[in-house]
């Protein structure tokens, strides 16, 4: 049994971290605040069932992830169907020639591991996620951050086939690659702070 803190301390201890996580996922401060509140409420109620197998923060983040997925599912239901980006042409198509060759230069990234040590890199990474089309960003984060299976994501986001989801994820990763390339790796080292 690990040492745990009192539920009354959670807001001060983990509130900001939960809020930031919700902000990256939802890009809306009011909504992010609501999610933190719902998470803490649910956590207080479930306190007795928390067995201490993971750290408190991991446990709380897990509850938050569920709340966010629930929210996205509900928000999705309220949208009219047929606005799908799934099969529409995408600007990532322009990165290839008609015959399927690269239209751009994919050059090597210098010292990517070193980038991980720089705050600025993480900020740019978050901003690149925020610039993805919303549904594409949701799909990518459900996959990479929440670790949901492609079947689960199809269900949550009402994507009709796994095939379409693969297309969405492939485009999302391509855009992330382009964004980080332009805003981090191709910038001159002296521009970096």
């Amino acid at each position: 049994m690990s040492i745990t803190s009192e539920p009354s301390e959670w807001l001060d201890k983990y509130g900001d971290a939960l809020y930031r996580y919700a902000m990256v996922r939802l890009r809306d401060s009011m909504l992010a605040e609501d999610m933190v509140q719902e998470t803490l409420l649910a956590a207080v109620q479930a306190h007795g069932r928390y067995a201490g197998q993971s750290s408190e923060k991991t446990w709380l983040t897990g509850i938050l992830k569920h709340k966010i997925v629930d929210h996205l599912r509900k928000a999705r239901r309220e949208l009219p169907l047929g606005d799908d980006i799934d099969t529409a042409a995408d600007r990532t198509d322009e990165l290839f020639t008609r015959r399927g060759h690269w239209n751009i230069d994919i050059s090597q990234w210098s010292d990517p591991d070193k980038a991980l040590e720089q705050k600025e890199f993480w900020r740019i990474f978050s901003e690149c996620i925020e610039h993805l089309p919303p549904r594409m960003g949701d799909a990518l984060m459900m996959r990479e951050l929440d670790g949901l299976s492609t079947e689960e994501i199809c269900q949550e986001l009402a994507v009709d086939t796994t095939n379409n989801l693969w297309v969405i994820l492939s485009r999302a990763r391509m855009r992330m690659r382009q964004c980080l390339d332009a805003h981090w790796f191709q910038r001159q080292p002296e521009d970096r702070t």
């Binding site: 900001d16 705050k119 993480w122 900020r123 990474f125 984060m141 951050l145």
Partner: peptide
């Protein structure tokens, strides 16, 4: 990129990130 995304939550604690 996949590795970076997985570690994103831990790096959201940086001081200049938004707070409640």
């Amino acid at each position: 990129l996949q590795r970076v995304a997985r570690h994103l939550p831990e790096h959201l604690d940086e001081s200049d990130a938004p707070r409640l």
